[in-house]
Design a protein around this nucleic acid. Sequence first.
DNA 1: CTAGGGTTAG
Length: 769
Amino acid sequence: MTILLPPISLPCLSKPQHLFLPFKPESSKTIFTGFSSCKPLPNCSVQNPKLKVTQCCTSSGVFPSEDTFLFSDWPELVKISTEFRDFLLGQAIHAYLVKSGSLNDAFVGNNLISLYVKFNRLDLAQRVFDKMPVRNTITWTSLMKGYLADNDFQSAFCIAGDMFEFGEKFNEHTCTVILQACSTSGDKILGEQMHSFVIKSGFVHNVYVGTSLIAMYARSGPFGDVEKVFDCMACKDVRCLNFMILECGKAGNGKKAFKVFINLLNSGLEPNDYTFTNIISSCNGDLGVEEGKQLQGLAFKYGFLNETSVGNAIISLYGKNGMADEAKRMFSLMTERNVISWTALVSGYTRSGYGEKAVDAFMELHCLGVNFDSSLLTTILDCCSEYNKLQLGLQIHGLVIKLGYKSDVNIVTALIDLYSKSGKLQSARILFNGLSSKSTASFNAILAGFIEDRGNDEQDSMVLFNQLRIAGIKPDFVTFSRFLCLSSNQASLQKGRSFHAYAIKTGLEADFSVANAVITMYAKCGSIEDSHKMFMAMNGRDFISWNAMISAYALHGQGQKALLLFEEMKKKGVAPDELTILSILQACTYSGLWQDGLGLFNVMGPKYGIKPLLEHYACMVDLLGRAGHLSEAMDIINKSPFPNSTLLWRTLVNVCKLCGDLNFGKLASKRLLDLSPSEAGSYILVSNMYAGERILDEAAKVRTVMNDLKLSKEVGCSWIEIENKVHHFVASDKDHPKSREIYAGLDLLRDEMKWNYDRADIHLISELV
DNA sequence: CTAGGGTTAG
C-alpha cells in the first residue's frame, strides 16, 4: 500500500542546460565488442524436458542434451538455473539458444542476460547482448544494471548513452537504474539532467524513481534538495519513508525524521525493522536520548525490539550518550547478537568513560571465538588511544597484521591516532607514509602526533599542509583545529594567521571548534586583540568558545576582563565547567585579584555544582601565595582531598621562592622532598629557592643530595619564530650560529629592564611618600 | 513474462 498525497507540481531544483549531451563517441566501440563463438555444449544424458532439467540442476555433473531444450519453456529454464544457482546449466541453455536461433526473440535473450547478471558474469551478459538482433528497453536496462551492480559506472553510463543514441525509449526502470548509477558514482550533473527528464516524462511520480532521486541528492547534497524531492513525491511507501528517516537522521535533522516517522504510522503503512532502526539511530542531534527511550518503548509495542538491528541501534544510542549501563542492559536482553552488537557495546563503554569495561567486553568476545571485523578492531584501537593503552594497542596491531587487515585504511588511521597520542610519533609516521591513499582522517591523526610532540619535531606544519593540498585532501574542521593548535604550540603567529585565512576561505571558520581554536591560537601567539575580534565575530558560541576567550584573558593577565566575560557568560545562560573556573582563577592570580579568586573558589561547589579538582587547588595555592597568604595556602593543601600531592607542594615551594619567605619555604620543601624523593625537578626548585635568598650552602646541599641520587632533569627548551623559521634554544645554549649576537642583545635587554625596574621603584616610593 | 528504489545497527 502507498500513501496518496495530492500531487504538487515539481519545481526543477537546478536548471540543467541540456539533456544527455556529453556522451563519448568511443563508447559504442567499447561496448559493442566483436562476436565470439560460444563454448561447445557439454556432454548430456538427460532426455526429457523440464522435470529432467530440474533433476540435472540438483545433481551435479549431469547436463541436458540438445533435445531437452526443444520442448522447453525458456524463461522457466532460465529461472530454474537461476534458482539453483546453476551456472553451468545456464551456459548450456545459452549455447543451445544460440544454435537454435532462439536469441532472435528479445524476451529469451533478456532472460539470459538477467541470468548472467545474477551470476555476476558481465562478460557473458555482454556477449548475449551483442548477439541479440532485436533488443528492447528491458535488454538495455538489464545490462546497464549488471554493470552498475559490478560497480562499473563508466560502462553503465556508456550503455545509457548508446541506448539514447540508438533511440531506445527510457522507462521508469531505466531511469531508476541511471539515477542509481548517478548516486553511487556521485555524478550530480547527470543526476540533475535525469531529474529534469523524469519530470518531463512524468516518471517522477513513480515511487522507485522518487526514492532513487532522494538517494541521489542525499549523496551529493545539499540536504534541502532531498527535502524538496521528498515533499513533492505524490506516492510514498515504507521503503521510501524508511530511507527518508535514515537520511534525515544522517543530516542531523532528527525532528524531520520524527515527522516522517509519525506520518508513516498515521498513514496506515506497516512499519518494519528498518523503520525502527532508522528512527532510533536518528536520535543523535535535535532528538536526544529521551526520545530514543520512548521509541524503544514503541519498538517493543510494535514487536520489533527483538530485531538485532533495532537492539544494536539502541545500544549505540545509549553508548553515544555515555549511558553504558543502559547499553549493557539492552545488550543482555537481546536474543541474538552479532559482531555489530559487540562493537556498539565496546564503543559505548569507550565513550562513557569505562575503558576497562570496553577491554573486558573485547576480551570476552575474543574468548567466544567470534571473528573480528575491521570495524571492531578500529573501535578497540580507538579505546586504546583514548585510555593510553599502548601495550594492548601493540597487541591489537599484531592481530591486525595476523588477520590480514594491515592495509585497511580505517584501522591504519586508528593505529596512527594511537601512536600519535601515545608519543610514538615515529611509528605513527611510518604507518602514515605507508598509506597508499591518505584521507582527511589520517592527516588529522598524524597532526595529533605533531601536537603531542610539542614542537620538538622538525616537521613544518606548512609543508604538511601543502602535502595535504597536493594529495587533494579536503581539510575538515578537525584538520583546521589541529593546524591552529600546532601554530599555538609553536607560538607562530604567521602560520596561525595563514591557517585562519584558509579556514575562512573554505567556510570552516563558521565551525565552533575551528573558531575556538582561532581564539586560542591568537592568544598563545600574543595577539589578544585578534582573539577578541574572533570571539565577537562568531555566529553563535558554545561553552568552549567562552572558555577559550576567558583563558585567553588569563594568559594575558587581564583578570578584570576575564571576570567581566564570566558575568556575561552567566547572563547568556551558558553553564561554566571546570575549565572555566580554572581559567578565571588563573586570570585572578596573574592580575592580583586574589579576593575575587578566593570568592569564586569558595562558591564553585555550592553555586555552580563543580567539584574542585587538583588543578583548582594548585591554582589557589598559587593565588593565595602570590598575595602573601602563605599560611592560608598551606592550609588549603592540608584540607584538600590531595594533601600528598607533589604538584600542590611544588606550587607552594615556588610561591615561597617568589615571596622570599623561607619559614614557609623550609616547611614546604621538607614535605615536597619527602613526597617526591626521586624527582630532580623538586630538588632543583628547592635549591633555587635557597639560592634566591643567597643561602648558597643550603642550595648546594640540596644539589649534592640530588647528584648523589644520580637524578637528572630533562632540559627545558624555548623557541622563537623569525621570518617563518623556528629557532630552538636550551639553557646556556651556544649552538646557534648567531649566539654571540643573541647574547649581546640579551645583555642590552637586561640592562634596559633593570633601568625600567629601578625607575618603577622610584615611582613606587614617591607614590608611597 | 524479462529489467527498477532503501544496503539499517559499529
